[in-house]
Design a protein around this nucleic acid. Sequence first.
DNA 1: CTGAAAGCGCTTACAG
DNA 2: CTGAAAGCGCTTACAG
Lengths: 347, 347
Amino acid sequence: MKTRNNGRVTILDVAKRADVAIKTVSRVLNNEANVKENTRARVLRAIKELNYAPSLAARGLAGTKSFLVGLLYDNPSPYYMNSVQVGALQRCRDAGFHLLVEFCDADTKGSAQRVHSLITQTRLDGVLLTPPVSDNTTVRNVLNRDGIAHVVISPPTLEHGVSSVHMDDRRAAFDMVEHLISLGHSKIGFIKGHPQHGAAKVRLNGYTDALRAHGIEYNPALVVQGLFSFESGYQSAQQLLTGSSRPTAIFAANDDMAAGAIAAAHELGISVPDKLSVCGFDDTPVATITWPALTTIRQPIVEMAAGAADLLLAQIRAGSKEPKTISSHSFRHDLIVRGSTAQPARR
Amino acid sequence: MKTRNNGRVTILDVAKRADVAIKTVSRVLNNEANVKENTRARVLRAIKELNYAPSLAARGLAGTKSFLVGLLYDNPSPYYMNSVQVGALQRCRDAGFHLLVEFCDADTKGSAQRVHSLITQTRLDGVLLTPPVSDNTTVRNVLNRDGIAHVVISPPTLEHGVSSVHMDDRRAAFDMVEHLISLGHSKIGFIKGHPQHGAAKVRLNGYTDALRAHGIEYNPALVVQGLFSFESGYQSAQQLLTGSSRPTAIFAANDDMAAGAIAAAHELGISVPDKLSVCGFDDTPVATITWPALTTIRQPIVEMAAGAADLLLAQIRAGSKEPKTISSHSFRHDLIVRGSTAQPARR
DNA sequence: CTGAAAGCGCTTACAG
DNA sequence: CTGAAAGCGCTTACAG
């Protein structure tokens, strides 16, 4: 009998050594019931002695699970992405799953086709969607059609039938503006996030909510469009600070833009926080790198990603049992006050 | 004949539709020679019509390739890691490979065992090592023993028989110090990188080289230990700036620490660059977020990672043909002068 | 230039 | 509680 096996240790080697059938080894591998304690111990010993690890390809081909989870991303902030990966990776590893990172151009028409190919090729057990892919309904439709478990991280809006982890961005932005108002500010500028990112709009809503709640009239001249980048924050702040109605505080929809606003203030010789308060959103490391350090909203990204992985793994374990296990998990935000906000300068 | 196929499109469906044997479809899939143009076209059409994508698990199990590349990392800077991933991911995708991201604790004894398990489970075709995993000889030994193609990104030292991409860190640090000297500085502080990262030592060597080349005596009081983090840069700079021999310039072994040094200067009321020049290394986005923006060394991380992926994919394609194709690629650095360095203040 | 058969290393579906 | 057989969807090794 010829064989192409390159001396790799297979389930058959383990079975022989433990003097059982391969099916029994398989049972031990998959933690199935109905294995005598003694037999299980013998198999485990053989596995250890042979340094055996089962082939994912074979398991995937024969069974229903690939032990592969996909992480779809597109161009997010490096800090954000890194945190997501750390959180997701840890849970996947603990559960014996591997993480496949795939770039997913949010704009392109071809994304649906590419996600479908990815799934048929790799037989992904589940997929994690990060913003702005979270907003992409085309991709989500493909996932639904192909019956692939998925969890959306920070979806633009909460929907029935969609598993997600999220934070109350609107409330968080509200809290931040209230913080500024409580310091005595009323001319508060706002730099909006990327127009195509769902969370961006919600943060603007929180801003206007807070103004309304405190009887401050909304002034469109104080709201400018940003793109979530340092550069866009810099330009937007410049616009606000050299315009006709100069704010005493600027709230940027993320930390990078807030850092840009601080740079613009430095350049214009406007000292922060004495003459201008600046605050951001997310509490990425950027927030402590600026001078002064940023008052911001802490978003627990690592925990959220870990939570998303937990939800996904639970769905995968449940399999295709009806009803589908849809669940969402909401995370708390925190207002982090640092040196970049203070009372407005006296006249 | 019962079947467990869940209505998935397989190579057999394609073969039937194109009226050929599955072997012929396989040939087309793998771009093998010896297929009549007409036949190939017929098969390709069937593939398109059926929206067929071959199962990686089946290909991996039957053949010699898994189409999976591993990226081993441990705790690097988010910016660095993100850039590496972007560069590697793009090339892998273009070549039809998928990227498996795996955390690899550089310290732990168990890393060898875990890497071996990873390889036997997933049958990775190749592995990319990022610093500080690049320094881990235990992991590299496992890779060699298991005969897995791998490329090391920025290894601590260049070795024969190891494929790598790298930059001349020593020369780059030399250039930076020479820049400071040319501005008129002679009391130049240095903040060292993490003691366990290979590149860190090399940058220190470049610093001492430059001093020697310009007849400036090495002063140990001007060299302090950092950890590549913002916080460690902050503390190290504080130490340098409040010590007995205060430098007129500080060169930090990466941008994060340089940002920390700028923060320390701000806190002590020492203006940058008027009273103190500060410079970093890497040219991450951090370098443009600080105020003033950092003079630094640009390291082409995305290009280096893409180059590493190219080398790895070439090795994989070459297969186990002797002699092993070991090659290294050296990348050029650039000195980027921004606002954080200037002539020293006059007495 | 094309194809029929065996095999990759597991799990599924049964049987006992 | 355990096992023998079939099958997953491909590639390898041949044969023609």
